[in-house]
Nucleic acid binder design. Structure first.
Length: 246
DNA sequence: GGCCAGGCGCGGA
DNA sequence: TCCGCGCATGGC
């Protein structure tokens, strides 16, 4: 992995320094609706940089990849800014980055997210031990508040045993989506979230109830091209976390 | 108290 | 293939 750029630098096995604050906002990255679990690290802000300290479960090189620090999001923003409707959302969420999430937690997270609200299902997800998903029964998931999604989750976890992330990575979008749609509880929207957030398919823009409203208000994500998924995140973040107007 | 939430599976046409 | 419906449950 090439880790040489002006955005961030690996200092040692547990430490990354992020220098370009214009494209790294930990709160926005955490709250833009792409992830609902805690980061496996601590992030400390200093005047001129952020310091990322890994926890025991990971290391600096993995975190460099997790935060997609090899990618210059200012270039992505510059490309998307050609669309007038994106300028305000980009300016609002300018420090958003698309993470490389672990496949299975991502699948489970977005199955639970269906027809649910972020505050509620975040609490549910915090109760789940993702290192040992197979121990859970339908009743366990019900007790954690997963409701009618509980049987889907048990089936999905069983299906995930037979799925190889590295093999799936080789598939083109349409084929990957078709495979993901076979997972219980995964429909088009959840499949697209998995593609964007676990497979980093930045051209895939999931359409949920909020984005449907954005489309009614003039956004056309099919125009946004190879970074349509990133555009979707800026728009989604602006919608769920509206700018304070003084 | 009613509507909504990062929708999905299912049955019927 | 395309409706329309039911669905658990808390937040607001």
């Amino acid at each position: 992995m090439n880790t040489k750029n002006n955005i961030a630098k690996i200092i040692d096995d547990r430490t990354i320094h992020v220098f370009d604050k214009s494209q790294f906002d930990p709160k926005a990255i955490r709250n833009c609706g792409q992830i609902f679990l805690d980061f496996p690290c601590e992030i400390i802000e200093q005047n001129d940089k952020f310091i990322i300290k890994s926890n025991a479960e990971t290391n600096a090189e993995k975190l460099y990849h997790f935060f997609d620090l090899q990618t210059d999001y200012n270039e992505i923003k510059a490309e998307l800014c050609h669309f007038k409707a994106l300028q305000a959302p980009i300016s609002h969420g300018s420090g958003i980055r698309i993470l490389f999430q672990d496949f299975k937690p991502c699948v489970i997270s977005f199955i639970v997210s269906a027809n649910n609200n972020i505050k509620r299902f975040s609490k549910t997800l915090a109760k789940i031990d993702f290192s040992n998903l197979e121990k859970y029964t339908e009743k366990d998931f019900q007790n954690m508040g997963c409701g009618y999604r509980s049987p889907y989750l048990v089936t999905a976890i069983s299906q995930l045993k037979n799925l190889d992330f590295d093999e799936l990575k080789k598939l083109k979008n349409d084929d990957l989506r078709r495979e993901l749609l076979r997972i219980s509880g995964v429909g088009r929207k959840v499949a697209d979230c998995i593609m964007l957030f676990a497979f980093h398919r930045l051209d895939v823009a999931p359409v949920d109830t909020w984005i449907k409203k954005a489309i009614q208000n003039g956004h056309d994500f099919s125009q946004y091209g190879r970074y349509a998924g990133v555009a979707q995140q800026y728009v989604f973040y602006a919608l769920i976390n509206p700018q304070k107007t003084n």
